[in-house]
């Protein structure tokens, strides 16, 4: 390098043969690196494919296990209202789903009135498919609702409503455990029950509830069924968010 400046000779260093030799060596070196790279590419691609296959297999294996041998959907319901009510209203929901919140807020008064006067009973089906990527809000909220339903069922409707009133942004991680506890307290749930939320005793139950709903054909939330029939049919989902439409449909079904 440093000798370059001092040598005006255009063909340094050495003869043309030496230059060719050098060039050939350079090419051989490139080729060696190239071969290593070629096999690295094959290796990486292979690893990636194997990795994805393993991930698919592992997750598809754990899912059926979580369903506990395919328990019936009916086992995973949060029932509210009088058992002999003529109409059964099934609501499949995920507490993170913004449209579930829209639905609940639109129909809250009607739902409460129908349960109150015995026109209908409600079966909530809790789902947690919106969890993922470190977000566990759907499961934590549903776990709390199951705990309330088992110990103090009279507070389920109020707690359900409170969760939707303070529904977190779909983009975020959801409410904290403390915030969920605070909502439960506001809905009248006793401190003894609230204290059990953090133990996540019903996590499996919620997972199975989600799987059962999926196996029953629920593909989106909110899904509403009146006496087992999906309402409103024909993809006219906007009726769910129209005040009074649900009440009218239930009244019709109860005739």
């Amino acid at each position: 390098m440093s000798s370059k400046k001092n040598q005006p000779n255009p063909n340094p260093p050495g003869t043309r043969r030496e230059q060719l030799q050098q060039q050939r060596e350079q090419q051989a070196k490139e080729r060696r690196v190239r071969n290593i790279i070629t096999f690295s590419i094959l290796g990486v691609a292979l690893l990636a494919i194997v990795g994805v296959i393993v991930a698919v297999v592992v997750s598809s294996r754990t899912l059926p296990e979580a369903s506990g041998g395919g328990a019936a959907t009916g086992d995973y319901t949060i029932a509210v209202g009088q058992g002999d009510a003529p109409v059964t209203l099934s609501i499949f929901q995920d507490y993170m789903c913004p449209y579930c919140g829209d639905f609940e807020r639109t129909n809250r008064d009607d739902l409460e009135a129908m349960v109150e006067d015995g026109t209908a009973k409600i079966e909530f089906h809790l789902m947690n498919f919106l969890d993922g990527g470190g977000r566990t809000y759907s499961t934590r909220a549903a776990n709390a609702v199951v705990a309330v339903a088992k110990a103090e069922p009279e507070h389920v409707m109020a707690f359900n409503a409170a969760l939707y009133d303070s529904q977190p942004e779909e983009a975020g991680m959801g409410l904290s455990d403390a915030e969920i506890a605070e909502l439960a307290r506001g809905a009248g749930v006793s401190n003894d029950v609230i204290a059990t939320f953090a133990q996540m005793q019903h996590q499996d139950w919620v997972n199975r509830s989600n799987t059962a709903a999926y196996e029953a054909g629920v593909r989106s939330t909110p899904t509403v069924k009146i006496n087992g029939t999906i309402w409103p049919g024909d993809g006219q989902t906007s009726a769910m968010f129209t005040p009074g439409a649900l009440k009218a449909a239930v009244a019709e079904a109860g005739k």
């Binding site: 995920d94 449209y99 989106s220 939330t221 909110p222 006219q236 989902t237 906007s238 769910m240 968010f241």
Partner: peptide, 15 residues
């Protein structure tokens, strides 16, 4: 707007 009113399970969280 109906096209957006639901959280579709298969479309991963898209809602």
């Amino acid at each position: 707007a109906d096209a957006a009113l639901g959280c579709n399970i298969n479309e991963v969280i898209s809602c």
